[in-house]
Amino acid sequence: MNLPTASYLAQAAIWPTEGEHILAHHDGDTIVVYQAYRPAIGHYAIRHGRLDGPDFSLNRMSWIKPNFLWMMYRSGWGTKPGQEVTLGLRLRRAFFDEILAKAVPSSHDTQRYADRTTWQQAVAESDVRLQWDPDHAPDGAPLPRRAVQLGLRGDTLARFAHEELLEVIDMSSFVDAQRPNPQSDPAALMTPLESIYVPERRG
């Protein structure tokens, strides 16, 4: 697996414990987000390095998660039907920052939108939804810290699935190996190396 990992307990000791934060694996040029798919979609992506196979729908919203443990909570550590294949998807930071800039909250944010009508118009016009949810510990317990997920559709989803996707990382064997550790041996749990992601300021 082409993704560095580190002890979960060591990482958790330095992560913020509350507030809204984008925890992600990133470097100077790229960021990794996670999705979990049924085998037909996941295995095609691994073989071809893109997501636009015959079983992947570009006509519905697809949610990406920069935080590995949020993905594990959502997929039941790769055990939920239709989420058996866990992928790390490497994107250019410039594209991810563009996604963030386009994002409209899934619920009405009174600080950004004066009224619901203005917010609903923004939702209709944007290709990207943003949702902050409780982050979760490896055993699934909710945490005070909140994690982001981003829903993509339309042209943004099409670009994500093909030309903006730099690398598809098959993480299923890693997920299988780590799945027992939250309950049986938390000190042995390894997770992808993640830190707070800060978008590049523009303009």
Rank of each mutant, 00 (worst) to 15 (best):
I169W: 01
A101V: 10
R47H: 13
S107H: 09
D115Q: 01
W132Y: 14
D127M: 08
H21F: 00
F95Y: 14
P199W: 06
L193M: 09
A188K: 13
P192M: 09
F160T: 05
L130Y: 01
R74H: 07
Q35R: 13
Q183H: 11
L51C: 06
I64N: 01
V85A: 02
L152V: 15
L130G: 06
L51K: 05
D29W: 03
L69W: 05
D29P: 01
L23M: 11
A10N: 14
T191Y: 02
L189Q: 13
D109W: 05
R179W: 06
L165P: 04
V128W: 02
A137D: 12
V123W: 06
G140W: 14
L91E: 01
L157Y: 15
H108T: 03
L87Y: 06
V85T: 14
A6C: 06
R47Q: 13
D155P: 06
S7M: 09
F95S: 02
M171Q: 10
I46W: 08
R47S: 09
R159M: 05
P66N: 00
L91P: 01
L166R: 15
M72T: 11
E200C: 01
H136T: 15
Y73E: 08
P192Q: 12
P134S: 13
N67E: 10
D97Y: 06
N59Y: 12
S126D: 05
T118C: 04
I196E: 03
D133F: 04
V85K: 11
W63M: 02
V123F: 03
Q120N: 07
R90N: 02
D115T: 02
V104E: 03
R202H: 06
S106D: 07
T110I: 14
R92A: 07
W132P: 05
P182M: 08
T5D: 00
Y113V: 04
L9E: 10
V168C: 10
G53E: 04
A36F: 02
A188D: 12
Q35H: 14
G154N: 13
T191K: 08
D133H: 11
H48G: 04
A147Q: 06
D135A: 13
I14H: 04
I14W: 00
H26M: 01
V175C: 09
H162T: 15
A124E: 10
T86A: 05
Q83W: 03
S184D: 11
L157I: 15
I31W: 00
L189M: 09
V148R: 02
P54V: 12
H43L: 09
V123R: 15
A24N: 00
A114H: 12
R74Q: 12
Q120I: 01
N67R: 05
R116A: 07
S107Q: 10
E84T: 14
D155Q: 15
V85Q: 11
S57M: 10
E20H: 13
P81T: 15
H21P: 01
L3Q: 03
N67V: 00
Q111K: 12
N2Q: 12
A103P: 07
Y197L: 00
P54N: 14
E164L: 05
K65S: 00
L166S: 06
S195K: 09
M72L: 11
M71N: 10
S184T: 14
A177M: 07
R202C: 00
K80F: 10
F56R: 12
E98M: 08
Q149W: 07
L165I: 09
P66V: 01
Q178F: 03
F174A: 09
D155T: 15
Y34M: 02
N181R: 13
T30H: 14
S195E: 04
V104L: 08
F95M: 04
H25D: 03
T110V: 13
